[in-house]
């Protein structure tokens, strides 16, 4: 049976991992390559790196991080932030990433999803979607971009379905309302989107305790759960999280010792 994935998210700025609350007040917390190796050894299933500055002059530093990570870890990882065309995607894929996450760029230019899927395969193209509660939207959530600063007027559910149709192979669904707050994922949003699409949905935003993952992977119908703060600050190890998930009856991979 397909196991639920625990994915660690690292926001990278100027070659350092950083973390903020509700996308603000970021502080540096470590070296992304060392952190990636540590999470790999702990048994995390996948990693996501977001280049959160994504200004052109810093792009080189970030690609260098991607290349180093690729040499250290032997699980899939996804890269996002500031990818605006096929050549940007090709650069991070050639550096060793399996997937790219398209967020603001996909809203501004949806064709990048179909173009990316045609060239690299749909398994490679992840839609990163930041959603904000909004009672005026048909689904109750609006898509926001630019790190949560800009409202798009797009309905979250409609955009998820559109992105799937264009060729996205997966959706990382981040709730702005719960991001970094560590009080649990947005279950309602995750469940609605995950049930509506045929592609895997990764829940993001709000993990603080292992039971939050259990909840979003069962009641929230997520295929995977993203964690950041709860592991970055050493409150929980990947092993502790997976142990707790198993106790709750959620099937996860616990790598055994290889002789």
């Amino acid at each position: 049976m397909l196991e639920k994935r625990v994915i660690v998210c690292l926001d990278v700025r100027d070659g350092k991992t950083t973390k903020g609350i509700k996308f603000k007040g970021n502080v540096d917390i470590g070296d992304p390559v060392e952190m990636a190796r540590d999470y790999y050894e702990q048994g995390c299933d996948e990693l996501v790196f977001y280049d959160i500055t994504a200004s052109s002059e810093d792009r080189g530093i970030f690609i260098d991080v991607v290349e180093k990570v690729a040499r250290e870890i032997f699980i899939p990882f996804c890269v996002g932030g500031g990818l605006s065309g096929i050549e940007d995607i090709r650069r991070v894929i050639s550096a060793g990433a399996e997937k790219v996450s398209l967020n603001s760029q996909a809203v501004k230019n949806p064709e990048i999803i179909s173009q990316g899927a045609a060239v690299f395969g749909r398994q490679c193209i992840v839609l990163g979607m930041d959603a904000l509660k909004d009672a005026d939207m048909p689904s109750g959530y609006q898509v926001v971009i630019n790190g949560g600063r800009t409202r798009t007027g797009k309905d979250a559910l409609e955009w998820a379905l559109k992105a799937q149709e264009l060729g996205a192979g997966e959706i990382v669904l981040n709730s702005i309302d719960t991001d970094g707050v560590r009080n649990g994922y947005e279950i309602e949003l995750t469940s609605m989107i995950s049930k509506a699409v045929d592609i895997p949905v990764v829940a993001s935003g709000g993990a603080g305790r292992p039971e939050h993952l259990s909840e979003v992977l069962t009641r929230g119908h997520a295929d995977a759960a993203l964690v950041a703060s709860m592991v970055h600050y050493g409150d929980f190890s990947i092993h502790q999280i997976k142990d707790a998930l198993r106790k709750d009856g959620v099937a996860v991979r616990i790598p055994e010792e290889i002789l």
């Binding site: 397909l2 299933d45 997966e170 895997p200």
Partner: peptide
């Protein structure tokens, strides 16, 4: 997968089959 799922009335499984499996 999608065609086989449809042919056999299997629902609720996503395609691509993505992730760790035994």
């Amino acid at each position: 997968f999608s065609s086989e799922f449809q042919a056999h009335g299997i629902t609720g499984l996503k395609v691509p089959h993505m992730g760790w499996n035994q």
